[in-house]
Amino acid sequence: MRITFAGNYHELSFKYKSVMLSINDLRASIEGKEILKGINLEVKPGEVHAIMGPNGSGKSTLASVLAGREEYEVTGGNVVFDGKQILELAPEERAAEGIFLAFQYPVEIPGVTTINFLKTAVNEIRKYKGESPLDAAQFLKMVREKAKLVSMNDSLLKRALNEGFSGGEKKRNEIFQMAVLEPKLAILDETDSGLDIDALRIVAEGVNSLRSPERSTIVVTHYQRLLDYIVPDYVHVLYKGRIVKSGPKELALELEEKGYDWIKAEVEAVG
């Protein structure tokens, strides 16, 4: 038997806003094992949604599937982003449409500087949109402003992408890239993992400075602490590949206090 709690969520949402992201009965597996077992979620412009849940519940899988990671096979359902079906799109096309994934483990790429990487990304996205590439001066000016916005040290820009960066620097670099690429939807996958409280605060400030009525955010996290800084509009609990509970931001506090066992028990009782 399949249970969805989408109904609860709809009661909480503002009906007059158009939907930016609509996930409908999304199912995905890896190596034949089903991880997502029917996800339903709607995100409207400007909203911040937190996806929480115990380890192995499928949180990072959801983030990866939305960004287009090819190891996962989508076995059912659909995802509509900004009016477009995106599951058939390549990762780079999704990025150009405005989806950004901040990685849990940002990849080190020796030999490619952050600045060169971002310049290529910005101009590839502009090409996708039929815009002319930014020249070096325009690009540099824009990048400097964005670096300032997220307190990113200029010297990191000239270094190889993430190579030898500390955990905090890597995560900050993710947020910096987000600032440069200006996505419509940012998905933060366990951005808090491996960060001490100071680094966490800096990263969260970066994310908050990028909040706008047009930009939506999905925060995937195991712990409540990140949500002290990035305050969500909604909290969803993912368990065994389904969203089993949704609620206002207070739900996160309840989870922090009581852990996930009571939710597991609730699900098992119904299931």
């Binding site: 390549a90 780079e92 990025a95 990685f103 971002l118 990304a121 590839e124 996205i125 690429l181």
Partner: peptide, 13 residues
């Protein structure tokens, strides 16, 4: 992994 990282930023394969 590096390839996906770059593509997720809009860089074509």
């Amino acid at each position: 992994e590096a390839l996906f990282y770059m593509r997720s930023r809009g860089i074509s394969q």
